[in-house]
Nucleic acid binder design. Structure first.
Lengths: 135, 135
DNA sequence: GCTTGACCCTCCAGCGACTGGAAGGTTCAT
DNA sequence: ATGAACCTTCCAGTCGCTGGAGGGTCAAGC
């Protein structure tokens, strides 16, 4: 006899707003749940795991589209091996993150530069424009 | 006699799509331009500077809302000094960037971890879940 | 004068990943 | 019986654009 949870309990357990869980279901990253007679969604431990999985993947920066692919493979009854797919996804994501990090490093330096200039001297030019954001 | 440009010329000059310039105007980060008889927007050098300013600020990660505040101060006829405002904005932005960078560093490590595990051993568990995204 | 193509205009819709709220049904405790 | 705290669906809004429809304008070439 499996324990059953309502969406609110699951939301609390997984640390995800109920609204977001419904949205995930609509968006196709979570399978449609069973419903009890009153129409409430019913979740078991397995579903909670699914939600956590999605959350982890999102936390790793995967898009819902990517998660969709992943779960399609995971839950698909075909014998598809998910390892190569996951590998590709993670690889793509990793290079995206590396690039993003590089850009942010640059951005930080620029901001520090602006800050330094702001400390040193008046930033406003005659016509009201601001030299501090000049490049 | 000031030179006048159409939105297309300005777009090219500033490296910003014409569509985006119109959007900026609608969004209130750029002042409404003068129009010539046929209804075309007219831009002068000053307007081009404004657009570039917005672009630079956006490039530094400021939101349009922040840019709006900034330009309100810049173009406001009040004698408001923009330096303290800019300083606050840049400070906020800088700490946001630093935090974001920290998160991304973590994320990168996690992804590399997943990648390492993917290389080493089979990721799928009996029930079809994937241990590689477990934490 | 007429057509062609490159401009310009406004308005409406959509992206992604939610989030908020309205309007209504259910369950449970008091 | 009433109220609070759930649940349901559906619609709208967020941010920063971007694309497209449907139409006006302009300069060049025939």
């Amino acid at each position: 006899m499996a324990r059953m949870f309502t969406i609110g309990q699951v939301a609390k357990a997984a640390g995800v707003p109920a609204k977001t869980i419904r949205y995930y279901e609509d968006a196709g990253v979570l399978p449609r749940t069973a419903r009890s007679v009153n129409g409430y969604r019913q979740y078991g431990d397995r579903e909670v795991d699914c939600i956590r999985f999605v959350r982890r993947a999102r936390g790793l920066g995967l898009s819902l589209e990517q998660v969709r692919k992943l779960t399609a493979v995971l839950h698909g009854d075909s014998g598809t091996r998910m390892r190569p797919i996951l590998r590709a996804l993670v690889g793509t994501q990793l290079s995206a993150v590396r690039q993003h990090r590089g850009e942010l490093r640059l951005l930080q330096r620029q901001l520090e530069d602006v800050q330094r200039r702001l400390r040193r001297r008046a930033p406003a030019s005659r016509n009201g424009a601001c030299r501090c954001l000049e490049r």
